[in-house]
Amino acid sequence: MSRKISKVKQGLLLLCCLVAATGCKQAPPAQMETGYEVMTVAPADRMILSTYSATIRGRQDIDIYPQVSGTLTKVCVTEGQRVKNGQTLFIIDQVPYEAALQTAVANVKSAEAALATAQLTYESKEELHKENVVSAFDLSTAKNSLLSAKAQLAQAKAQEVNARNNLSYTVVKSPSDGVIAMLPYRVGALVGPSIPQALTTVSDNSDMYVYFSLTENELLSLINQYKNMDEALKNMPEVELKLIDGSVYGEKGRVESISGVINRQTGTVGVRAVFPNASGILHSGASGSVLVPNSYKGVIVIPQEATVAMQDKISVYKVVDGKATSTLITVAAINDGREYIVLDGLKVGDEIVSQGAGLLREGTQVK
């Protein structure tokens, strides 16, 4: 009986081994394969608009300060008024300066009379000295009195000129064509050269200066593109101005100057563009954005999503023999946020992974 049970157990064991062996011989599950979008590199032309924050200033923003002290007796302009060069803006109390001028004129006349007397005295002493009636000392004294009278007359005339100038300074005139800013002082206010705030500001806004900055890399790219700074200023395309409300200003401007010094704190260089402002839409002190077009012809352009950035290095995955091969590239400093212009690392005809490059690893099979 025990022998029969033992044979049954052996049979069951053998059956289990066969089942296990059959399961071990089953084929492994198929691996999942992922497809990637690829592109073949080809030359293309691109016009890329680079945007830079900008501030707008008038060609001249002149703060008007009085050159003499006194009470404002008349304000001849209003805020926002357009004025001409030499137009009267303010009048300061003229009474004390008119009195000072009259005193100066009287002093000149007195000095002229004193000079005439000294001249007659000297001539008389000179004749008497020839006849040995007066001594050489008396003649020298008369001559010195004549010289002193001449000096006093010159001093009196200088005081007269100064008095006339001070009187003319009581009429404050515009030094250029422009638009009047705010008027912080009114009739009756005491003003002078040391007042904390200007009487007003005259802004010449017939043309407007728009200031923005380029990074050091963008500056070098610009110089490399046009060979030197002078050629860059001559041949740079016209720029546009986007206003604070998002609209684009109707007139185009041109880059007029680029600073020759890089700011150590910001690492940028200042650029000035000039825009015509015949319509008067632009105002000094406003802000906006400058749109600078950059034209590239026959260049290699790839989507930015085809790249992998690691610190300051940018790479793509070329497809070589069906496998992903990481390749470092050099791109232009200027881009539109969607595409890169490749300067080095790729050539026409290369095949690269155009999407999902960040998920790839070196040697990944690309289907």
Rank of each mutant, 00 (worst) to 15 (best):
A27H: 06
A27E: 12
P28H: 07
P29I: 10
P29R: 02
P29G: 07
Q31L: 14
Q31N: 13
M32D: 15
M32V: 14
M32I: 14
E33W: 06
E33H: 10
T34K: 12
G35M: 12
G35S: 13
G35E: 14
E37G: 09
E37V: 08
E37D: 12
E37M: 08
V38A: 10
V38M: 08
V41P: 01
V41T: 04
A42G: 08
P43M: 06
D45N: 11
D45Q: 10
R46T: 15
M47K: 12
S50W: 11
T51S: 14
T51Y: 15
T51W: 15
Y52E: 09
Y52D: 10
T55F: 04
R57P: 01
G58W: 01
R59N: 15
R59A: 14
Q60W: 10
D61K: 00
Y65C: 05
P66A: 02
P66N: 03
P66D: 05
Q67M: 07
V68D: 00
V68W: 00
S69V: 02
T71I: 13
L72G: 03
L72Q: 02
L72I: 15
T73V: 14
T73G: 06
T73N: 07
K74W: 11
C76P: 04
T78F: 02
E79D: 05
G80K: 01
G80T: 09
G80F: 04
Q81C: 06
V83T: 03
V83Y: 00
K84D: 10
G86R: 02
G86S: 09
T88A: 08
T88R: 07
L89Q: 01
I92P: 00
I92S: 01
D93P: 03
Q94V: 12
Q94K: 14
P96N: 04
Y97L: 08
Y97D: 03
E98Q: 15
A100D: 11
A100E: 09
L101A: 08
L101H: 05
Q102G: 10
Q102V: 12
T103G: 05
T103V: 09
A104H: 01
A104T: 07
A104W: 00
V105M: 14
N107L: 04
V108G: 01
V108N: 01
A111H: 02
A111C: 07
A114F: 02
A114N: 13
A114Q: 11
L115G: 08
L115I: 09
L115R: 14
A116P: 05
A116C: 05
A116Y: 05
T117C: 07
Y122R: 13
E123K: 09
E123S: 13
S124D: 15
K125L: 14
E126D: 14
E127P: 06
L128E: 09
H129R: 12
K130S: 04
K130P: 00
K130N: 03
N132E: 13
V134P: 01
V134I: 05
A136Y: 06
L139H: 02
S140K: 14
S140N: 13
S140Y: 10
T141E: 12
T141R: 05
T141W: 01
K143N: 13
N144M: 11
N144A: 12
S145D: 15
S145T: 14
L146P: 08
K150E: 13
K150M: 13
A151K: 11
A151F: 03
Q152K: 11
Q155P: 05
A156Q: 03
K157D: 05
Q159S: 14
Q159G: 15
E160N: 07
